[in-house]
């Protein structure tokens, strides 16, 4: 159930992102709102449901970005694992560390996608190095927006938290 809710949330965010960017310069700058979702999953979800939800979010990313299938699914699962590793070694509880990690996550998705596409697709359709600057701007914007998403995702998670009766009595 939690996985389905995260998937629905990813679909909603992807649609909001596409529609909202129309009003924010028409796409001159972009944001990767699903990167904070993946980071959040890496930090707070369980191993099995987290990795399944991350793969689902990756599928949504694949469809929305219209890239060859599997690219963002692979990168999303990898980002989930990286976020998990970072969460295990560093304290990422506040908004600022989350924003930083989300920005780096967005950069990871963009740069990872760029590298894999450069490596795998025919050279005439491979993305150029000039998109890296856009990726950096995207990462900064994503980091700036991620605290908003963090509170939303926390509220979403609270819906699934149940207090065990009798523990506090």
């Amino acid at each position: 159930m939690k996985i389905l809710v995260h998937l629905a949330c990813a679909l909603l965010l992807a649609a909001v992102q596409a529609a909202a960017l129309r009003f924010l310069g028409g796409g001159v700058v972009t944001a990767a709102l699903l990167a904070p979702c993946l980071v959040y999953l890496g930090l707070h979800a369980g191993n099995v449901d987290g990795v399944l939800a991350a793969a689902g979010v990756g599928l949504v990313l694949d469809v929305m970005a219209a890239t060859p299938k599997g690219l963002f699914t692979f990168l999303a699962v990898l980002l989930f694992l990286v976020a998990r590793a970072v969460g295990a070694s560093v304290d990422v509880r506040g908004r600022l560390p989350f924003a930083l990690l989300s920005g780096l996550g967005a950069l990871f998705l963009s740069f990872g996608g760029w590298l894999l596409l450069r490596w795998a697709v025919p050279p005439e359709v491979a993305p150029r190095a000039t998109v890296i600057l856009r990726a950096i701007v995207e990462a900064i914007l994503t980091g700036a927006l991620s605290p908003l998403l963090l509170s939303g995702l926390r509220r979403l998670d609270r819906l699934f938290e149940r207090e065990e009766p009798g523990l506090l009595g």
Binding site: N47, V51, L52, A54, A55, G58, A66, T67, P68, K69, G70, L71, T73, F74, V77, L78, L81, L116, L117, A120, V121, P122
Partner: peptide, 20 residues
């Protein structure tokens, strides 16, 4: 985890040469 990493990567590498 290995399945969810390797299968998408394999699918990507198989589809990368074709127009989406």
């Amino acid at each position: 985890v290995a399945f969810l990493l390797l299968v998408p990567l394999g699918v990507f590498l198989a589809n990368a040469k074709k127009a989406a």
